[in-house]
């Protein structure tokens, strides 16, 4: 089978959808983080696929920036989760409702 741009895009869109739905429905903060990472990786895959198909390096280079930013995001995010766990003893989203509505 010849793998072309459509296969890349379909996989990427599928991963992105999984991640998106996961962020909306999962209750555990850590799983939500993993779903966010999945979405970023879906984007990465799309960029690499396009980069190869278009014959330009911009997409590949952009991927490195995305990985760096994702690492920074998760570093701060995990720090918040650890601190929150110390105060509240839970990382489940439904328990985080102390800000009034």
């Amino acid at each position: 089978m010849n793998i072309g741009i459509h296969e890349f895009l379909a996989t990427s869109a599928l991963l992105f959808t999984f991640g998106f739905v996961g962020v909306l429905v999962r209750r555990n903060v850590l799983v939500v983080y993993m779903c966010l990472e999945l979405m970023l990786n879906a984007v990465t895959l799309a960029l690499v696929g396009f980069s190869r198909f278009n014959g330009t390096m911009d997409g590949n280079v952009f991927v490195f920036f995305i990985i760096t930013v994702a690492a920074a995001e998760v570093a701060v995010g995990l720090a918040i989760v650890v601190e929150l766990f110390r105060r509240r003893g839970t990382v489940m989203l439904p328990a985080l409702n102390h800000l009034k509505h």
């Binding site: 741009i5 903060v29 970023l40 396009f50």
Partner: peptide, 26 residues
């Protein structure tokens, strides 16, 4: 709690935007 809510939703929106950027680039 506010920071966590901001983080999850901001990261979600930047992932959505990135996918848009990837499509436009492609």
């Amino acid at each position: 709690e506010a920071g966590l809510k901001y983080l999850v939703l901001a990261a979600l929106s930047s992932a959505v935007m990135l996918f848009g950027i990837a499509l436009l680039y492609g």
